[in-house]
């Protein structure tokens, strides 16, 4: 398994992601610059967080037009593993790889804190090992997931909600929904399950030294997935 960690101008979680993948998950990972037109030699993609292109126009809107995104779209279409975290999730939505959009947090504040997640979908490679409630950090200002009613009904009906924000004991409560996301949605998968987008940062929670290794349950899919 060799993971492409996509770097755009303004990416700032790229080093965390590469380190986590190499040192904590134990897979090969290399940076791929945004103007690259080929992902030959890679088996999976990680789109990291940051403030790509200064969040100009909308978060992720400029990154969605980068040359490398045509290759990421192809990976997603072909059923290869693609994960977008935080700004990476915003980029996947702006690229129409995942449905919906991320809007400003309901309290208009940048939120840097731990949050608690429960895996709703349990059949994707990213969620099948996530037992009970996991603690994963968030760091964003535009993380309120929204989608039109038809899309929401499809996400809920087809089991495409990957994670919801919950209380530490696993209850759904607006008090524990940090950004006001619709239906407390923290992450979604596509209908094939190969693409995951989520606002919380599992790559920042893959070793105890960082305070928590609950992210291993999500990130270890990169090691356990079949390589093709």
């Amino acid at each position: 398994m060799k993971v492409a960690v996509i770097q755009f101008p303004g990416s700032n979680c790229d080093q965390d992601a590469l380190y986590s993948l190499r040192e904590d998950i134990g897979v090969a990972a290399e940076y791929v610059w945004h103007d690259s037109t080929s992902l030959v030699g890679f088996n999976a993609v990680f789109v990291p967080g940051g403030f790509t292109y200064g969040d100009y126009l909308r978060c992720g809107a400029m990154a969605a037009t980068a040359p490398v995104m045509d290759e990421v779209r192809r990976f997603a279409r072909e059923g290869r593993p693609v994960v977008g975290v935080c700004n990476g999730f915003q980029i996947l939505c702006e690229s129409h790889i995942l449905p919906g959009a991320l809007m400003q947090n309901v309290n208009q504040k940048f939120l840097g804190q731990d949050c608690y997640l429960k895996a709703i979908n349990r059949t994707s490679p990213w969620t099948e090992r996530v037992e009970g409630v996991v603690r994963i950090p968030i760091a964003h200002m535009e993380g309120r997931y929204v989608a039109d009613a038809e899309t929401l009904a499809r996400l809920e009906g087809d089991g495409l909600v990957a994670f919801r924000y919950v209380s530490p004991t696993g209850e759904l409560s607006e008090e524990w929904n940090p950004n006001g996301a619709t239906n407390a949605i923290a992450g979604i998968v596509n209908d094939k399950g190969n693409v995951l987008g989520m606002m919380p940062h599992p790559e920042r929670a893959t070793r105890k030294l960082l305070g928590c290794d609950d992210g291993l349950a999500i990130m270890s899919a990169f090691r356990l997935l079949p390589v093709n």
Partner: peptide, 8 residues
Amino acid sequence: KLLANPVI
């Protein structure tokens, strides 16, 4: 395609 996001 770019200036507006039709979702929102």
